[in-house]
C-alpha cells in the first residue's frame, strides 16, 4: 500500500495514463489503471494492456473521485485504461461550468 500525498504523480503500467493526486485521505491506497497498480513515473515496469473490464479510458483534464469524495485525482495524460482503487472504478467529477472571470 502506498501513502498518497497531494501533488504526487502516478503512471499507468498498462497504458499512457498519468495522474496527479489533488486530494487524498490518510492511510495506504493503491491507485489502479486498467486494472493494474500504478507506479511512480519512470520507476515501474510497464507492460501488458488494460483489463477489458477497466478499459473505458481516462480523459485529459478530467478529475476522478471515489464514492465518498475523499480521493480526487486529475488526469494529466490520457490513456486507454480506466482509473480505480481496490477493484472499484473511480467516478468522473462533474463540475458546473463557471463564466470566465479573468
Amino acid at each position: 500500500m502506498a501513502e498518497l500525498t497531494p501533488g504526487s504523480r502516478w503512471a499507468s503500467q498498462v497504458c499512457t495514463t498519468e495522474v496527479i493526486v489533488v486530494r487524498a485521505p490518510g492511510g495506504g491506497i493503491d491507485l489502479e489503471c486498467g486494472g493494474s497498480p500504478m507506479a511512480t513515473p519512470g520507476e515501474g515496469d510497464p507492460n501488458g494492456s488494460p483489463d477489458p473490464a477497466s478499459a473505458d479510458g481516462s480523459q485529459l483534464g478530467k478529475r476522478y473521485v471515489n464514492d465518498d469524495d475523499t480521493l480526487e485525482i486529475l488526469c494529466t495524460k490520457p490513456g486507454d485504461g480506466s482509473l480505480g482503487v481496490g477493484g472499484t472504478l473511480l467516478g468522473l467529477k462533474e463540475a458546473k461550468p463557471l463564466p470566465a472571470s479573468d
Binding site: G7, V22, R63, A95
Partner: peptide, 24 residues
C-alpha cells in the same frame, strides 16, 4: 503557494473548455 493557485484553477476552469478560435 502552488496549492492555492491550482485549487483556484481546478475549481473555476474546465480544462480545454475553449474553442480553437477563442482569444482573451
Amino acid at each position: 503557494r502552488q496549492r492555492h493557485l491550482v485549487a483556484y484553477i481546478l475549481g473555476s476552469v474546465e480544462f480545454g473548455a475553449a474553442g480553437e478560435e477563442e482569444a482573451a
